[in-house]
Write a protein that binds this DNA or RNA. Structure first.
Lengths: 127, 127
DNA sequence: AATAATAATAGGAATCATTATTATTTATTG
DNA sequence: CAATAAATAATAATGATTCCTATTATTATT
């Protein structure tokens, strides 16, 4: 794969945020520095960076988000504010259990835990 | 919500399979028995059945799949044949751990484990 | 540094899954 | 049975993503 300024910029943008960005968000950021960049280029390069192992993908509903964190980890998704938070859970236990119980060789665990994050906790619940 | 023959048929179809069908698959089955049914009706009713708790949704890449199994469970997705299998894992441990460590109230855990299922296991690997 | 070979891009069209719109049909209720 | 309001069929619209093609940029070679 040969070098391109576009791909370098795209990787830089993804690595520069903790916000689990979509392709479109990356595109909006990228065009600030490189106004002629096209959306197709962003999609193509994000996909390539993902197969290359430079970034990871997260399926958030019907949208794909990208994450530079290489360690296996999972996501908490708040149903109120939509925020995605990284968490490190029982990854090893899951792999072991699945391998033993189902004879299934695990490549990757994609876990999204949906609920309410601590920003919305209240002492008195009102119905 | 008032009765409709379409909704009854759609629920019957989803409950009659273990294949985690997409809206379009349900539509193809439904029109065999009710040729005039429309795709929009299938989407609308699947969505309603999901909010009603009659079926659950699974995000499989960019497609939504439906599952009638009401027990909390997770999915093994084979990267070779694409099959989705149901598995029952450490759900309670996950909920407890997330609640305690992150002060996050869990509604639902969506876990997809990607790998290779036992149909593709070989004793001798050939590269 | 100029040239040739070809990989990558920009821009836009196409596709796929899903949602919205609207005129018509149908279930419910008095 | 007639009124009414919810559900449908048909189709247009949308949003995310992929595909296409002429042009541009990178890299290897002179």
């Amino acid at each position: 794969m040969r070098y391109s300024r576009q791909r370098e910029l795209i990787l830089e943008i993804v690595m520069g945020t903790d916000s689990h960005p979509t392709a479109d968000w990356v595109f909006q950021q990228a065009r600030k520095q490189m106004p002629e960049i096209s959306l197709g280029t962003v999609y193509r390069n994000l996909k390539r960076l993902a197969t290359n192992g430079n970034v990871r993908t997260i399926n958030d509903g019907t949208v794909v988000r990208y994450d530079w964190d290489q360690e296996p980890h999972d996501h908490l998704k708040c149903k109120i504010c939509g925020d995605l938070m990284d968490v490190h859970l029982l990854e090893e236990d899951i792999r072991k259990s699945v391998r033993e119980k189902y004879n299934f060789e695990v490549d990757d665990v994609e876990m999204t835990i949906i609920g309410t994050c601590n920003k919305h906790n209240t002492i008195m619940e009102e119905k």
